[in-house]
Design a protein around this nucleic acid. Sequence first.
DNA 1: AATGACACGTGAGGC
DNA 2: TGCCTCACGTGTCAT
Lengths: 235, 235
Amino acid sequence: MQPEISDHIFYSFLTGGLCASSSTTSTTTTSSFYPFTIEDTISQEKALAAQRNHKEAERRRRERINSHLNKLRKLLSCNSKTDKATLLAKVVQRVKELKQETLEITDETLPSETDEISVLNSEDSSSYNEDGRIIFKVSFSCEDRPDLLQDLMETLESLQMETIFADLTTVGGRSRNVLVVAADKEHHGVESVQFLQNALKSLLERSSKSVMMGHGGGGGERLKRRRALDHIIMV
Amino acid sequence: MQPEISDHIFYSFLTGGLCASSSTTSTTTTSSFYPFTIEDTISQEKALAAQRNHKEAERRRRERINSHLNKLRKLLSCNSKTDKATLLAKVVQRVKELKQETLEITDETLPSETDEISVLNSEDSSSYNEDGRIIFKVSFSCEDRPDLLQDLMETLESLQMETIFADLTTVGGRSRNVLVVAADKEHHGVESVQFLQNALKSLLERSSKSVMMGHGGGGGERLKRRRALDHIIMV
DNA sequence: AATGACACGTGAGGC
DNA sequence: TGCCTCACGTGTCAT
């Protein structure tokens, strides 16, 4: 908080108002002999009013900005003493994170246009470990067919793998399946990724054979449909 | 961009340095007769240096803040002429949206601890319409069992409803099923919501019967497990 | 003492 | 012209 006095001193110094107009500054068209003419007084009052307006407008602007910054502090559950710069840096990071997060979720959930298979074992990418068991994450997209799920379960059963988590999404005739499966370490190692991949590949081949006829349209129709569904799902 | 000259004039005015120290400002302990002592010069240089440091530090601070603001402009694909205040308002809105979005997604996807049934017809909440068909959104959580899916499909088939979208998530012995189904308007109206709800209710009752024995543990164990799975899924 | 962060008032420039 | 936004330099408080 600044003392109000300094404001006025400062201002009158810069404008050269109250002291005199006899300095090197260009004199006004009204080159009166007397330092205080009516016009001078009026224009000075106007100038003062303008300056006051300006000052207050600027204050409001600052308040607006700071209020939004405070909202962001709350949203990021930041201490009220967090720097503006640091806060904004965190906001940038958070927005990036959230953006990618939702992207990944929809990407991982919705079927892709093309057939895809992905098999990961958890030891590759993270240190997750369950004693005596090895965990795989399986994800694939393909055309949907009535007995796809049953085939999948039989496949996993024949590989002696237990399904811990399953997310099966079907939309517009295509299916996206994400599974987390556990296998005994006696029978399986990291090389079992190959088994899984091959088993899934044959699954997809069966799938593409069985749907050879029936679907004539291309992907465009499906895309339109998916968008409509997105609308519903958001309800 | 301000002319540098005014800086120096302004500064020397405020410090009262170059002119005189005979003003009302408190004189220094060195009350020398001469206006320019060595100590004065030295302290003035120091003061000047300090002021310069201060000025530049403040400039850097501004640059830091503005750089983050520009990053946010890019992230929100805002025009570079967007107000700081407006930009920040949009950032606040965006963060809120994204937060709720991810929350809804995980909420809609993961099974809830308690059994739940929700049936909506799209005409209630949105204007979505498909000529000659009425669309329902079905969502329920229950204990998982081997023939749950088959029962569900049979139920829908018996109701003459076609599944447009299905998202089936199973984790830790519980199942979350979200379906969008379409029904012919000849056979179904908005009142069919009741049929669906009743059919699902019996489905869940069958489910809870079939799992009466087997699961002894409560929900705590499952929660732990789900958290571990979240870890995997994020890979 | 020195540094950093902030609010302030101001001039400049865009409509 | 007036209104609005911004960058700037400053005083001030806290660490």
